[in-house]
Nucleic acid binder design. Structure first.
Lengths: 334, 334
DNA sequence: GCGCTTTTTGTTAACGTGCACATCCATCTC
DNA sequence: GAGATGGATGTGCACGTTAACAAAAAGCGC
């Protein structure tokens, strides 16, 4: 007991005793067992974070942001990833709950009923991030992937393009990039509103998409007749692969094909031409999530679910030009 | 107790009872508390993984590989990252140990004496990964970063280059990319052995390096007189940034400057020209680490520390040409 | 130095689970 | 039908920690 006091409120122990205890701690290399402590205090110090994958800079940024916010408060992140599989999500969720996290952060809307039931039963704050679910379980810190898609389409339409394609992964039964699909849905809806065709959407491969996705779809995309004028890729990574493959084939971006991505990955800024994309501040999203968790756990829980939209913005760079529908390309008007 | 039996050996309970229990479990959304279980069984099911950062595809690959290997055995990964800071490493380590992991995986050699002492006192298998420490604590699954550097230098020297630079991050007191430094050390040693100057090494910014590191050093590098013929970057990411900046400046790679990276990041394959680099199979490294942990924990522990070198190989791509010291460039000989 | 207050240290019990053992009940054997 | 057998279920305890309380020690005023 005195040891416990030395570690937790050193001032309540006489300096002489404290020194003796500290010596013993140091000699033995004693580190208290938090599992045992948790059992008594009912506080595990775990925050669960469920991501589709770790191999994605934006999701890593969320983890970093969360850590930033939680570091001072001595919470540990318990990270799980699902590889975009619903079955795996449910499995991982059960695992996580067995660790009694004090809050649970899940990426995007929880897909399965069973998963949602488990979350409700766990009776801890649940924060869905990186999307705005139509029927949230509890709290939300995200942005509308649907609106991201519509915004992208609107941008390309305003630029004067008519033949606009989208590229995404295929939808398999268990493995679905739900947020990517929402972007595609918004994109196609916006095209429809402008009376443009939506049958140019190209699906290939399994989520998550990466550079090779873009290189793989480039061939198919470039063969389309009449030629496609602009493409929106669900992810910058695919968009970058596409731009690179265009360079290899001698197809000029944006003169021959305009390319737009999503996610504002660092590489998009560096390639030539720099990639026009949609930016979401994922690190801030993670930090905001962390702050909300701290508020919720510090007891001042206004019971009302918090819904935070961190927004998004188009980053105009050079991979999108003006389309044939405009008076002329910026180049021509100069 | 009967509930415990239903969950762990269902056959030892009468079907009728089992059904009743399962119904209650399902109604309540009961998930057993592993912390409480661990207290009794002395098995937490945690494997600790300490990484410098999550925002690095190769380290993420290690995590994925580890998970692959451990998934079947019902272990959970407890991931911590240090942002390359020694102080943070020690802090995180203390945190991790409080969770009583059954094995601890740390990236690279443990830098601080205090950290090493804690690991020893924890009395669980320790696996140092992604390097070959000269004085390992316990087990090792890695490769020699020093040899990676020497290999890179040897490759560039054989190509006929004389003025060869290296780019890396600066060494700050607390924030050091130790493995990157090892590569630079090996690189410079090999240059020295060939009587080449080592004063062309350029340091910039704090670890970890990324694309912007490459773009930032490009200017300085290209101003050197007489001109530098080839560059080795501690990371592909920096190398890619460098190649991109060269493209913007009209400097041809590899005709005007040969560039070599390390890590075989996916983007290196996609850029133009594709990046010559050193490949290490980080996913396999993670899987191998997982296998070894399973062997060690399944009791058949041959007490002898296991030292596994997963090796590395040069991936010859187009960003390195033949140097001025050769009879001619490959292009010329054709 | 005596009684009082305050500070420091010690004791007990409980958190949720699972092993070991105890008990119970149905079935079988003779 | 009494006793033995074996399978199913229940009970007690321990794991390492900490809150609450109890006890002891130290400080203080007169």
């Amino acid at each position: 007991m005195t040891v416990s006091r030395v570690m937790r409120k050193p001032d309540s122990v006489l300096p002489a005793t404290r020194d003796r205890v500290n010596k013993a701690i140091s000699d033995l290399g004693y580190v208290p067992d938090r599992a045992a402590g948790s059992l008594h205090t009912r506080r595990t110090g775990f925050i669960a974070l469920m991501l589709p994958t770790l191999t994605n800079a934006n999701f890593s940024a969320v983890a970093h942001g969360l850590t930033d916010a939680l570091r001072a408060a001595d919470y540990d992140l318990l990270i799980a990833y699902t590889d975009y599989s619903h079955a795996e999500e449910e499995r991982q969720l059960r695992n996580l709950l067995a660790r009694r996290p004090e809050a649970i952060v899940v990426t995007g809307p929880v897909s399965r009923r069973e998963s949602a039931r488990m979350l409700l039963a766990a009776d801890v704050p649940v924060i869905e991030i990186a999307d705005l679910p139509s029927r949230p379980i509890d709290h939300v810190v995200g942005f509308s992937n649907y609106q991201a898609g519509r915004t992208a389409a609107r941008y390309l339409i305003q630029k004067g393009f008519k033949r606009i394609a989208a590229v995404a992964s295929t939808q398999e039964h268990e493995v679905v990039d739900h947020r990517g699909e929402e972007r595609i849905r918004g994109f196609e809806d916006e095209l429809r509103l402008s009376g443009l065709p939506t049958d140019l959407t190209l699906r290939h491969g399994k989520a998550p998409v990466s550079y090779s996705h873009g290189t793989a779809v480039a061939g198919i995309l470039l063969e389309r007749k009449p030629p496609i004028e602009a493409v929106f890729a669900v992810s910058d990574l695919s968009a970058v692969g596409l731009v690179m493959e265009c360079a290899r084939r001698g197809v000029r971006v944006p003169e021959d094909l305009s390319v737009m991505g999503f996610g504002d990955f660092e590489i998009g800024r560096e390639i030539n031409p720099p990639l026009t994309t949609i930016h979401v501040d994922f690190r801030a999203l993670g930090q905001r999530t962390g702050q909300i968790i701290l508020e919720l756990l510090s007891g001042e829980k206004a019971k009302t679910p918090r819904i935070v939209d961190v927004g998004l913005k188009v980053l105009e760079r050079a991979s999108v030009a003006a389309g044939p529908g405009t008076a002329g390309t910026p180049r021509a008007t100069k």
